[in-house]
Structure formats: C-alpha cells, structure tokens
Amino acid sequence: MNAVLSLVAVLALVGLAVLGVEAGGLYSLFGVIVPYIAIVLFLGGLIFRVLGWAKSPVPFRIPTTCGQQKSLPWIKSSKYDNPHTGFGVLVRMALEILFFRSLFRNTKTQIAEGDKVTYGPTKWLWMGAIAFHYSFLVIFIRHLRFFTEPIPFFVDLLQTVDGFMQVGVPVFYMTSLIFFGALGYLLLRRLAIPQVRYISLVNDYFPLFLLLGIATTGILLRHFVKTDVVGIKELTLGLLSFQPAITEGIHWLFYVHLFLVCTLLAYFPFSKLMHLIGVFMSPTRNLANNSRMVRHINPWNAPVKVHTYEEYEDDFRDKMVAAGLPVDKQPEPKPAQAEKE
C-alpha cells in the first residue's frame, strides 16, 4: 500500500509536469520559478535543520563502541572502532562516510539446524548502498557540464572514465546502469523481504520512486528522445546568472526530468535524505570515547549552592570545641587576649 501510494505520488508529479508544459504552456513556471523555489527550499531548509540539530546539547560522550575501550596501557584498544582521540574519530568518520562501515558490519540472524541461532554476515544491503551512492555522486558531478561554462577538467575526465566502454552513441555511461540496478535492488529489497516491507513507510518508497523517475527520464533524454542539450545549457546558465530566459524547442520530457529533480531538492531537507548531513553530526559517531580520561561536565547544570563541612566547622568551631567534639582544624589560640583578661 505504501509503495503504491508513493508510486502514484511520483506518477502524479510526472503528470503535473506533462500537463503544465504540454497543455498549459507554463514553461516559465516549470523552467524558472519552480527551480528557483526548489533551490531556496533546499538550501534554506537544510540550514534550518542543521541549526536545529546544532541547538540540541550533547553533554556527554555517547559513542557507539564496537571494540575494546582505551584503558590501561597494556590492554590493546580498538583505535578506530572505539576511538579515544580526535584522529581516531576522524578515521572512524571517514570510514563511515566513504565506506559505510557500520552497514558493512551488518549481520543476519538465522536459525540453523533446527534450534540454533546463528549470526552471519550479510553484505547485500551494503553493496547496494555503495553502488547507489557512488553512482549517484558520479552522475551528480557529470551533470556539472550543464551548469558550468567552461566545463572544469574533472567533469570531462569523469565522463571519459564513466563512458570508457564506448557502448553506443552518445556513449552509455556505466553509472547510469549501476544507478538503475542499485535503485531497483533497494526497492525490491523493501518489497520482497517481509520484515523490511513491514517497516517500510511512504517516505521510504517515495524517494526511491522519485529517483527511479529521475533516472528513467534522464536516460530517455540522453539516448532516446535527444532533445536540444545546447538549449538546455542556455536555460541553466541563464538561471545560474540570475537572468532566466526560456529557450524554445526543448522537449517536454526535459521539464518532467527537471520537475522531478526540483521535487527531490525541495523534499530533501524535510526527509530522511538529510542523512547526507546527519552522518556528519551523529554524536554516536563523531565523539571520542574518552570518558575515562576527560571529565565532561554537564554544561547546563544549575548552579547549586553548597555548604561544605569545612564551612560548617568554621561556623560552629567554638561551640564544637566547647562541647568536646573533635574538629579538623583546631581553633586558633588567642594568647594575647586571654592573658589580658
């Protein structure tokens, strides 16, 4: 049901763009206004969310630990799985962000030989995630050819590597295929595994269908519809230099592609896709586990007015001595005065 709802939502977005452009002729709405709104929502929403996170206090070290903590010098500690230094945290974060280490550690619980519970490694989700994220990154950077003039060298280099197989003209990029395959796997996984389907919500399916829509329209535009890419670049450069102008003769499918991307941008800050930033700000990842070495004082502890024993004794020392009670600090003798009296 959730999956169907998400699919219907994406199809409705496609229909909206087709109708708006083909029947309504609303080129400046879909070509100029919507992209501007989307990018403002994306950047504004993202900053808003990050500032919100930054306002939540993290008074104590709460790292998830996956190895021996640093304690006595002769006990070997896990430097990166249970880091106690800033450098260790840096390595841990790099492994997490670049290689999805915590997902790599994923295990699967199974019942073997009738009644034995076993835990085995399962790397499929990790593989799908790596394939998806890296091909998405390559596709994202590749698209800079439509957004920069002149085109930076690394975009050309990436395109050459990505199109290394030289299949068809224009060359079919490897990442197009990998992106599509990985997305398909991530979607099928949600649909096919009963436990995962049970916990899958509309906002899990929606980005998947949205990205599938973006990938489909993108591949269609490159290999089958072949709209005017020079015109498209004129449009994007106009948007970037804040002198928007609609170029005539761009195929309606391009506006569908653009509208789906705009939806993704606008939706991004308010969805689970914020893990793009969240991964950097996870206290369970980015804090060093140095609770044994550094005293962390709760920054919002209310100031408590205390009255120590020493102060108490100062107040009542004479009376205590007079009553014969032991005192830590002996009363100062007052020899001069005593002699006079």
Binding site: L43, I47, L51, T148, E149, S241
Partner: peptide, 26 residues
C-alpha cells in the same frame, strides 16, 4: 557547524561562482 555549513553551501553553489568568475555565462 558554521564552517561545515559554509563548505557545503560553497560546494553546492560551485556552478554559480565558477561561471561568474569565468565570466562566460553569456
């Protein structure tokens, strides 16, 4: 947080300032 956000915004707006700096937007 502010340094991180600044880097992110700088990266995302790369096409704008890169094309502006090259002066070839037109």
């Amino acid at each position: 947080v502010i340094i991180g956000l600044a880097i992110f915004v700088l990266l995302i707006t790369f096409p704008i300032w890169f094309t502006l700096a090259s002066g070839k937007a037109g």
